[in-house]
């Protein structure tokens, strides 16, 4: 088990290195993408700060609070992109037969698929997010150890949910070889995670907590940090992530079984 983990880590590291080489080969184009991501991050942040020059509270949150929500969203979103970006081309991996190679080689096909595009542009974008987050953290009233621990735990939990969504999409791609747009709907819906979910009308808010758990991924960690998340909801978040992981991995295995028994 540990030997296999070590091997998978080495394979991942090698694929990350290859992704970097691939991205560097794009030159100017890659620079454009990187710049675009940075522009989006900084402009959005600048607008939020500017708005607070004209008001001092938003749905009961201060600028520091809103910044925590916004930056935490970015952290979860970007880290998920770094690790799971390859899933975006799951359909192509099935069509071009890459999946066939993954299946006959002694290494997890799911990991191979996710790591075909470890996005280094996002590793660069995550650095300013971490910097801003550190600065914001500094301006928060003293954060208790438990709140900090819950924050980190719920971020990891959010990543687990993000992972499950990606696995589900990969499973759908293997099964139907269609629905390539599902992942883009997810990307678009993630827009809602930039703000604390408290600002949304109740039906939308419940949707984001229960049905499309973007709120659980992006808002819950910040709420825990600010001490506004109840223990019950924290437990719900963790149970949800566990269930989502289990269900998505089960769906993935079913999809692979079906691929190897039905498809031609």
């Amino acid at each position: 088990m540990t030997a296999s983990l070590g091997k998978h880590f080495r394979v991942w590291r090698r694929m990350a290195w290859m992704s970097l080489g691939q991205q560097l080969s794009y030159g100017v184009g890659a620079a454009g993408f990187l710049l675009g991501k940075l522009i989006r991050l900084f402009f959005f942040f600048a607008y939020l700060v500017a708005i607070f020059k004209h008001t001092n509270s938003l749905a009961g949150y201060s600028l520091t609070d809103i910044a925590v929500f916004f930056l935490t969203f970015n952290l979860v979103d970007i880290v998920a992109q770094i690790f799971f970006r390859g899933i975006y081309s799951a359909r192509r991996a099935v069509e071009d037969g890459d999946l066939d190679y993954y299946l006959i080689q002694p290494c997890s096909p799911l990991m191979r698929m996710a790591a075909t595009m470890v996005d280094f542009l996002d590793i660069v974008t995550v650095l300013p997010v971490l910097g801003l987050l550190a600065a914001t953290w500094h301006r928060l009233p003293a954060v208790g150890v438990w709140h900090a621990a819950a924050y980190v735990l719920l971020i990891l939990n959010g990543l687990a949910i993000a992972f499950s969504i990606h696995v589900l999409v990969a499973g759908i791609a293997v099964r139907t070889q269609e629905l390539e747009n599902t992942i883009w709907i997810y990307r678009d819906l993630m827009f809602l995670g930039r703000f604390p979910i408290d600002i949304y009308a109740a039906p939308l808010r419940w949707t984001l907590v229960l049905l499309v758990p973007i709120g659980v991924m992006t808002s819950f960690p910040s709420q825990a940090l600010l001490g506004t998340l109840s223990l019950g909801w924290a437990c719900y978040a963790i149970a949800l992530a566990a269930a989502a992981l289990g269900a998505s991995l089960w769906f993935w295995r079913r999809s692979i079984d079906q691929y190897t028994s039905v498809s031609s």
Partner: peptide, 23 residues
Amino acid sequence: HRTQLWWEIPAQETFRLNQEIYE
């Protein structure tokens, strides 16, 4: 008519990957 080689980078990179995969 299929390839396992990574398209944009030299073939030896894929060889190295297979070295890890096949230990």
